[in-house]
């Protein structure tokens, strides 16, 4: 008897299993765990995002800002999972953020940007008959860390393929996510300086990365509370932090 076997309930993205699960979403969440590690830390001085850039071959050019991108002047995004899926979500977030500026002459709040991403993320399936645009046929296999500064101060959010979004003080996603979270939990405190947070991000990346940490295989960006602007740290800056790591 095949009833109860999950094989048959993981075919369609709109089918619940008898236990009340939608397997395709759970599989999509699994896809994140194959992605490279991405870390975000919130402090009172601002937020830090850091990512690992995997270089499978020495011959590959280290691409700039592939997994750490700008959504708006005041908001950045780190990703882990299927990067192609993330680009769809990021493009959507960028359009929403600019639309908000056009309509209301103000920066969109980080929570709203995250919500806009999540709205798109749960919009998968077969679509409705007669509607012109078909939605994504499967869940997006990516998690995003969305960080920035708005009227409520520095904020860090995480989205996942189920359309859930959560606010964090510090969060790590991707292949080294769980290990990184335990590591960060030990050192994080709520009145950290931005420099301390940057160092903690790098230190954590160093401890979870398979390759040796170098200025061309990690990247960090920050959004300062006072300037409300996204800044990408230079390779020299990253090198300086690496040289101080334990």
């Amino acid at each position: 008897m095949w009833m109860g076997s999950k094989e048959h309930y993981d075919r369609g993205v709109n089918t619940f299993s008898p236990e009340g699960r939608i397997y395709q979403i759970e599989y999509a969440i699994e896809a994140i765990k194959f992605g490279s590690t991405a870390i975000g830390i919130r402090t009172n001085e601002g937020v830090v995002l850091g990512v690992e850039k995997k270089l499978p071959s020495k011959l590959m050019e280290p691409a700039k800002s592939e997994k750490l991108v700008e959504i708006d002047r005041h908001c950045g995004c780190a990703m882990s999972g299927i990067v192609g899926d993330a680009r769809i979500l990021v493009d959507h977030a960028r359009v929403e953020a600019q639309n908000h500026r056009f309509n209301y002459a103000e920066a969109m709040s980080i929570e709203q940007i995250t919500e806009a991403v999540s709205d798109l993320a749960i919009n998968f399936g077969e679509g409705y008959e007669g509607t012109k645009r078909k939605p994504m046929a499967r869940p997006y296999g990516v998690a995003l860390l969305i960080a920035g500064v708005d009227d409520n101060g520095p904020q860090l959010y995480q989205t996942d393929p189920s359309g859930t979004f959560l606010q964090w003080q510090a969060r790590a996603i991707g292949s080294g996510g769980d290990t990184a979270m335990t590591y960060i939990k030990e050192s994080y405190h709520s009145n950290m300086t931005l420099a301390e947070a940057e160092k903690l991000v790098m230190q954590t990346l160093k401890s979870v990365m398979e390759e040796k940490i170098q200025s061309d295989n990690v990247e960090i960006s920050i959004v300062r509370t006072d300037t409300k602007r996204l800044e990408t740290r230079t390779q020299e800056y990253v090198n300086n932090i690496i040289s101080t790591l334990a």
Partner: peptide, 21 residues
């Protein structure tokens, strides 16, 4: 609509832009 979507009251600057649009 703005208040419900963004959980805050629009500023005069925002309303100025909104009215123009």
């Amino acid at each position: 609509t703005y208040q419900r979507q963004f959980k805050k009251t629009p500023t005069v600057e925002s309303l100025a832009q909104l009215l123009g649009n």
